[in-house]
Simulated scan of single mutants.
Amino acid sequence: MTRNPIAANLRLDIEDFSYAPFEQEGGLGKVHQLFGAELPGVIETLNRELAA
């Protein structure tokens, strides 16, 4: 599910979870439920590794 936002923007942003295909799996609410306060750090790490 992360392929399209990453391919389009070369990064993943929290807002991306509000759109398809993420919204079909619970969207931003589900991501916050799963990662909680760690979400910004997880996204930052993903983006840093993608850029490397």
Rank of each mutant, 00 (worst) to 15 (best):
M1C: 12
M1H: 14
R3K: 14
R3I: 15
N4K: 09
P5G: 11
P5V: 09
A7Q: 13
A7E: 13
A7F: 09
A7I: 15
A8E: 15
N9R: 15
N9D: 14
L10R: 15
L10P: 04
L10M: 13
L10T: 03
R11S: 09
R11C: 13
R11I: 05
L12T: 05
L12R: 02
I14W: 00
I14L: 12
E15F: 00
E15D: 13
E15S: 14
D16M: 03
D16A: 10
S18A: 15
S18P: 00
S18M: 03
Y19K: 09
A20C: 00
A20K: 10
A20L: 06
P21Q: 01
P21K: 03
P21T: 04
F22T: 04
F22M: 10
F22K: 05
E23P: 00
E23K: 12
Q24C: 06
E25A: 00
G27C: 06
L28F: 08
L28I: 13
L28H: 08
K30T: 00
K30S: 12
V31F: 08
V31C: 05
H32P: 00
H32R: 11
Q33M: 11
L34M: 06
L34H: 02
L34N: 10
L34E: 07
F35A: 11
F35Q: 03
G36R: 13
A37P: 02
A37E: 12
A37N: 03
E38I: 01
L39H: 05
G41A: 12
G41L: 12
G41H: 08
G41R: 11
V42L: 13
V42Y: 14
V42T: 00
V42K: 09
I43E: 03
E44I: 02
T45H: 11
T45K: 04
T45C: 07
L46V: 07
N47M: 08
N47C: 07
N47F: 06
R48K: 08
R48S: 07
L50H: 08
L50V: 04
L50I: 07
L50G: 06
A51S: 11
A52H: 10
A52W: 06
